[in-house]
Design a binder for these strands. Sequence first.
DNA 1: GTCTATACAATGATAGAC
DNA 2: GTCTATCATTGTATAGAC
Lengths: 183, 183
Amino acid sequence: MSRSARSGTREEILDAASWLFAATGFKGTSLQDIAGAVGCSKAALLYHFDGKDAILAELLAPAVEAFETLDARLAALGDEAVRRAAVEGFVDLVMRFRREVTVLYGDLPDLLQRPAFAGVQEMTDRLLAALTGRSAEPAARAAALLVLGGVPVACMEPCGIGDDELRSALVRSAARALDPTGA
Amino acid sequence: MSRSARSGTREEILDAASWLFAATGFKGTSLQDIAGAVGCSKAALLYHFDGKDAILAELLAPAVEAFETLDARLAALGDEAVRRAAVEGFVDLVMRFRREVTVLYGDLPDLLQRPAFAGVQEMTDRLLAALTGRSAEPAARAAALLVLGGVPVACMEPCGIGDDELRSALVRSAARALDPTGA
DNA sequence: GTCTATACAATGATAGAC
DNA sequence: GTCTATCATTGTATAGAC
């Protein structure tokens, strides 16, 4: 049945897409999935938006805008104050836009659930426990997650630094992040 | 591996797929892209492999195996030694299998290059500089990358901890990781 | 055993009817 | 303005040539 044309369809699309992107990833969500959740046709989506990318862009616009605000704020600070402000501002930004960040990182859990990775999730959980020294404290777990997510990113980026130097820098920095007796 | 060493097509496929997956992501690489790089047909790929997932599985198998080795080694350690071993073992693992890790995280750079994120890359570079206190030291940059990659991961994982507690734990841990005067 | 040829359902996207 | 009809491309599957 052709459903009556409504003007609230745009918001419905954004809402459904936000949920689906976070749950199954951007590439893992088809226009038909979104259309099915909204209750309209695939082509109807493409009337309201210029494509799948446009839906993503509109969903992430507030997060990008907040990032721009932080960027401008940091630019006005001196070298000694900028680091503390950057740490707190970045943490705040990510926590405030958790849903959007989940969309950005959403394709990784998708990959990890493939048969090729049977057991990897469990090993990762044990690695997390090891990184905390098998502590059950939430703060220790948070630090371990920071290391777990940060080391691969640091290794992927080409940073004009030798492998040995990068390795020792990461080991030292990660050890400090995990140190419960630290500052 | 291959009993009839008449053709090295299998290895050529793995080599091309490894390069393409790292460059454009898993979902962003089509079988036709791989076939084109190898110089064979799409169907020829599917003779050698049971599908796109099977190519990925074989590419990542050595990394998964090394992870299993680390997992077993950590299981034999006591609580006080396990953390240091986990840190070093994890860093070593990720650095040794950089290419494979890049494949796993490969869909994120793909997303970041969309028009929706014009300027985000530059802001991220400035955020990195801020996290180092605008220092040019490679070790400081490595620590900043660790924080940049780790905070989102820590925020995405449900860890049964209040938002305020998680925030302060992350701010403290990230500050320690970035502290150049630390241990 | 290795591969070409062909067909298939589902995807993102477009043109044009109403 | 909204949606039907259609398109090229994707991953996958089968048949059969050498």
